[in-house]
């Protein structure tokens, strides 16, 4: 008699410093955007509940610090993630190039069982900027995502709330798929073999 339960999904957000990881998360969870930039220290956690088809899921989003000095903490954060979001800044070519290193880093640190099928989602953030400032074309990014293993990719703006919900919907779906891929059987078949020293044969039974 399975109860209808909320699934808890662990989602890790990775990417270079300043690409807008925290802003994306804030926009998604709280619908807010701050112009002020504050570097994330270590990691931050936000939780949001959402409905995926007939299911309610609770997303536990782990917003990590992009700065190099926090990288040693990776293992502590990454383990057991259900989905990993790779974020780059469309105006920053370096952050785009680093996407694949972040992916590798995650796969190594998180000790993922089936790296081929682990769900990643790529987000190109800050599409609200002037076209002239964009360094990575959408076409180039899409080709890159295909090369990385046909990963879903979204062009978003945390500032103007463009494409955020769509991106997180796919993140949640992919995480859910990953999460549900588990077996848990409660048969109580682990019987204990009891051996009594002098098993009493003449008891009243």
């Amino acid at each position: 008699m399975p109860l209808k339960k909320k699934t808890l999904l662990k989602v890790i957000i990775l990417g270079d410093s300043g690409v807008g990881k925290t802003s994306l998360m804030q926009q998604f969870v709280n619908g807010k955007f701050s112009h002020q930039y504050k570097a994330t220290i270590g990691a931050d956690f936000l939780t949001k509940e959402l409905s995926i088809d007939d299911k309610t899921v609770t997303m536990q989003i782990w917003d990590t610090a992009g700065q190099e000095r926090f990288q040693s903490l990776g293992v502590a954060f990454y383990r057991g993630a259900d989905c990993c979001v790779l974020v780059y800044d469309v105006t920053n070519p370096k952050s785009f190039e680093n996407i694949s290193s972040w992916k590798d880093e995650f796969l190594i640190q998180a000790n993922v069982k089936d790296p081929e099928n682990f769900p990643f989602v790529i987000i190109g953030n800050k599409v609200d900027v002037d076209e002239s400032k964009k360094a990575i074309s959408q076409k180039k990014a899409q080709q890159y995502a295909i090369n990385l293993g046909n990963l879903p990719i979204f062009q978003t703006s945390a500032k103007e709330a463009v494409n955020i919900d769509q991106a997180f919907d796919v993140i949640a779906r992919n995480a859910l798929q990953q999460e549900e891929n588990e077996d848990f059987n409660t048969d109580f078949d682990d019987a204990i073999n009891i051996q009594l020293e002098n098993d009493n044969q003449n008891c009243a039974c």
């Binding site: 339960k5 383990r79 077996d183």
Partner: peptide
């Protein structure tokens, strides 16, 4: 067993 197959196993659900 449950966590061996998957570190992110959601035991609460079960």
């Amino acid at each position: 067993r449950s966590f061996q197959n998957k570190e992110g196993f959601d035991l609460r659900k079960h």
